[in-house]
Every structure is written in structure tokens, then in C-alpha cells.
Design a protein around this nucleic acid. Structure first.
Length: 452
RNA sequence: GUGGCUGUAGCUCAAUUGGUUAGAGCGUUGGAUUGUGGCUCCAGAGGUUGUGGGUUCGAUUCCCAUCAGCCACCCCA
């Protein structure tokens, strides 16, 4: 027998969630579900493990390298999913007949990537995807933008910006300037522009990607377009003119922004020609979402349109569009911005244990209140009231019910509200009708914001 | 995976050129207060200085390795 203790710790890039983290995390998930459902997206789930060949097909070498994989007891090569899009591709290829098109689904689940952790970047994190499969209608592109905006607002954000671009514009532009072969290098450079500035990009383009002066100038001009959508669009149209693909991309952006304006959400969207997105399966509209107060944390909701989601798994052409909210990154940002409440309990009400002889009364009262929809905890030990109040305060309860022999005798309880120290004597006769009304009034009044 | 910075109590940080029993604030536990939290006061618990080696009479301090965090590259939520 060894007395050697094992040091309790978590794997690099993996973390535990304490109640004060988990409560807002679950609340965010609830908000996501609510918003997705409000647009008709239906929930699905897929296995966390897939055959390695399913997961590796689409990705680049980079994603293959980042994927957790192993050989199982049956000699199968197994991978842990690193996003929800590849499993979706397999899923729709396998079930498209039962699903019917267009198909709108949301999928909230954990994914794993063995990359270097940084602030807001973990090896295990949750994505909240929503996608519309089986239609090329621009309506879906617009709707995807609206979902992102609704989502961010419902999560309590006002200062955010959805940056939108279109791969057709980018690809048309590359075609026009004879850069199609060097697309990856150029797009990568463009994507980096806001971070490192035009000078660094100029060097990278001419020296690494070997562009000539005219090409370099055009790329930088394109990527730096800024201002009102109309202004960007007209300048973009000039740059791209003569290339049908690029012109189509411009037209799509124009139609989308016209819709956003009509719907009054113009202030949350912006055309950003420097958004390229790494994943090469995007073919049309692309989105990234930034918090204006925490831009350095990166995009918290990204996505775009793809022509052929499941080409690896079926001959059926399945176009689609979707985006993914990075729940853990968002949560990290909210923590840094002090947006998380401090409560460590989901319960609003604590019933103090005045003396053990009255335990049955406490339990009965708790049951009554739970039935009325409140979360209630009975303090287990008949410690002194001071200690019980201290506990209630630190744990984050909003109200404490004290029912000593005097109160119980007259079918009453003391209801103390911690935030303002108010205390009232309330009757619990008639199945606690008065108490329930009182609690409803108090909790509704203080519960206007998103409940976490 | 590569490079840089960092690592002392749950958290934020101290500890004179390497020197003896490693300190403080906050938090936590108990008490002051036998029917009432936040404020105040008192007391207690909590450290093999991330871990493992090395140099030295002696290492929290210097060196190496390793692990973890942060930053950059890469990629991305």
C-alpha cells in the first residue's frame, strides 16, 4: 500500500468548470437553443468518435495533425471530432433521404483540437453550430446573418460587429489578376492584414508569393477597402469589373446589405474585404463576429457558404450555409469583461434550518415552492442563523426564509431579501399563496436581464 | 509543432548580491453575536517555493530537463 498521493490536475488545454462558470455556460447554451429554434433549426447529435478516414478526408494536413486519434480495441483507426461540420457532412450524406431539403439543424457539442492553447483557445471546447443545407437561396445567407445578430443580442451583447465578405469576390479578383494558382498564399496574407498592417503584407506578397507590383498593389487596395457598404461595393465593383464571378459576389453582398438595412440591423454588420477564412470549402458569403470590447480574442462566431458540403461522401450536390458560435471563447471574453454573475447556486431561495424538530415543515414548504417553479434549498444543519445567513449570502441566494416556532404557530414565515435587507412576515396558509405571490413579484422585478 | 516570457498558500504578490523557523492582503474555517448576511475585531487551517535532477557548506534565488500558463508563428471557436 502506497501513501503517495497523485497530484490532481487536468491535461494541457483542458479544464474543469466550477458552478460559477457552469451556470452561465448552461445559460448561454439555453439562449443558443432558443434563438436557433426560433428560426426553425432542429437539433441533431452525432458521435464524438468517428472513423479516422471520415474526419480526415476534407481537412488540410494541419487539421489532421491537430486531431486526437487512436487505434481502438478492434484495430479501427478512430478520431475525435475537431469540428461539427465534417460530422454534419457525413450525417446528411447518410440520411438525406429521411431529412428532406432544405434541412436546417443546430448542433451544440464539444470538439477537440490538439493545438497550442492560448487565452480563449483550448484543446476541448464547445461549438454551437447552425446550418441550412440544400438551398442556394440568398435568403439563407441573410438569415444566417440575422441569426448571428439575434444570438449576440440575446446573449447580452450590444457592442459587436459581424464582418462579412464573399469568396466569389475574392476568387473573382484572384482570377482577374492571374493569381488563382497562388490563392492560398494571397488569401492568407489578406487575412492577416488587419493584424500586421499593409507594409508587412506588401513584403509577404512580393517576396513570398512572388506577386508583381501591379498585383501587389491591387491586393492591398482590395483588402483595405473600408467605410459604408455602398462605398466599398462601388470600389469593389471597379476593381473586379469584367470578371463574372467577382461581379456576382458583389451583387450578393449588395443584396444582403440592402436587406440588413431594411431590417434595421445595419449597425451590426460591415463589409470587410480582408476576411478570407482558412477553410477552403467556403465558396460564397463568409462571416466573422468580433466583440468591439475584446477584439483580440478573435472571432466568436464564424461561418459561411459552401457549394458542396458532402462531396466526399455522396454524389448528391449539397450546398449549404452556416456558422458556429464559439461558446468557450465567448465565455472567456465575458469573464474578462466582468459580465458573469457571481452566484454559485441555481437556487434563489434558501430555507433556514431553525431547529431540527421542524424539519418536516421546511421540507413541505420547499416542496410547495418547487412546485410553483422556484429553486429552493433547505439548509441541512441547525447551525446558528448567523452562519446560515452568511452561507446564503456567499452562495448567492436571493432570499432566505426563516420559520421559527413563533412563525410556524401562526402559519407564517419571515422572508428576508438579501440584496436590500428587507424582511417581511408572510402567511403560508392556503398552500402558500401569499408567499408564492410575494416571491414572484420580487424575482420578476429583479430578473429583467438574461437569467444566468 | 517551433520560438520567447513566466511559475512562491485557493487568488494577487513579498522575501536585502545564494544564508538559517518562506511573509502579507484577499478568500476560506471557527469565534466575538443562543432569531439574521455584507462592516469590524480575534484565532486557526492551508507551502517538500510546479516537478525532477545538478552546482554549492547552504538554492525560492544559479544551471539543465520536464510539466503548466501566457505571448508570437501556424491555425482557428
Amino acid at each position: 500500500m502506497s501513501n503517495q498521493l497523485i497530484q490532481p490536475r487536468t491535461l494541457k488545454g483542458f479544464r474543469d468548470f466550477l458552478p460559477e462558470m457552469m451556470l452561465p455556460r448552461e445559460a448561454l447554451i439555453e439562449v443558443c437553443k432558443r434563438v436557433y429554434r426560433s428560426y426553425g433549426f432542429a437539433p441533431i447529435d452525432t458521435p464524438t468518435l468517428e472513423l479516422f478516414e471520415i474526419l480526415t478526408g476534407k481537412g488540410s494536413e494541419e487539421t489532421d495533425r491537430q486531431m486526437y486519434h487512436f487505434v481502438d480495441q478492434g484495430e479501427r483507426h478512430v478520431g475525435m471530432r475537431f469540428d461539427l461540420t465534417v460530422p454534419l457532412a457525413r450525417f446528411v450524406a447518410q440520411h438525406s433521404a429521411q431529412l428532406g431539403m432544405p434541412f436546417k439543424r443546430y448542433h451544440i457539442a464539444t470538439v477537440w483540437r490538439g493545438e497550442a492553447p492560448q487565452a480563449g483557445r483550448y484543446r476541448e471546447f464547445m461549438q454551437c453550430d447552425f446550418d441550412t443545407i440544400g438551398t442556394t437561396s440568398l435568403t439563407s445567407d441573410i438569415e444566417t446573418g440575422l441569426v448571428i445578430i439575434d444570438l449576440m443580442k440575446a446573449l447580452g451583447f450590444e457592442r459587436f460587429e459581424v464582418r462579412i465578405n464573399n469568396r466569389k469576390v475574392l476568387n473573382g479578383f484572384l482570377e482577374k489578376f492571374g493569381l488563382a494558382e497562388r490563392a492560398t498564399a494571397v488569401l492568407r496574407a489578406i487575412d492577416k492584414l488587419p493584424k500586421v498592417g499593409p507594409k508587412a503584407i506588401e513584403t509577404e506578397l512580393s517576396e513570398v508569393a512572388k506577386l508583381n507590383l501591379e498585383q501587389t498593389a491591387a491586393v492591398i487596395e482590395m483588402a483595405q477597402l473600408a467605410g459604408e457598404p455602398q462605398l466599398i461595393l462601388s470600389q469593389m465593383a471597379d476593381l473586379i469589373s469584367g470578371n463574372p464571378l467577382g461581379e456576382q459576389g458583389c451583387e450578393e453582398l449588395r443584396a444582403m446589405f440592402a436587406a440588413f438595412d431594411e431590417l434595421g440591423v445595419g449597425k451590426h454588420v460591415r463589409i470587410d474585404p480582408s476576411i478570407a477564412r482558412g477553410l477552403d470549402y467556403y465558396t460564397g458569403t463568409i462571416f466573422e463576429t468580433f466583440l468591439l470590447d475584446k477584439p483580440e480574442i478573435g472571432s466568436v462566431c464564424s461561418g459561411g457558404r459552401y457549394d458542396n458540403l458532402a462531396g466526399l461522401f455522396t454524389r448528391e450536390q449539397l450546398p449549404g450555409i452556416g456558422a458556429s458560435l464559439g461558446l468557450d471563447r465567448l465565455l472567456a471574453a465575458m469573464e474578462m469583461l466582468g459580465m458573469l454573475p457571481a452566484a454559485k447556486t441555481p437556487a434563489q431561495i434558501m430555507i433556514a434550518n431553525f431547529r431540527n424538530e421542524d424539519l418536516a415543515h421546511y421540507l413541505r414548504l420547499a416542496a410547495l415552492l418547487r412546485q410553483a417553479g422556484f429553486n429552493v434549498e433547505v439548509y441541512p444543519d441547525s447551525k446558528k442563523l448567523g452562519a446560515q445567513f452568511k452561507f446564503a449570502d456567499r452562495r448567492g441566494f436571493q432570499g432566505v426564509i426563516v420559520a421559527g416556532p413563533d412563525e410556524l404557530q401562526s402559519q407564517q414565515v419571515q422572508l428576508k431579501w438579501l440584496a436590500d435587507s428587507s424582511q417581511t412576515l408572510v402567511s403560508i396558509a392556503n398552500s402558500g399563496e401569499n408567499l408564492i405571490n410575494e416571491l414572484n413579484a420580487k424575482l420578476n422585478r429583479s430578473g429583467t436581464e438574461v437569467k444566468m
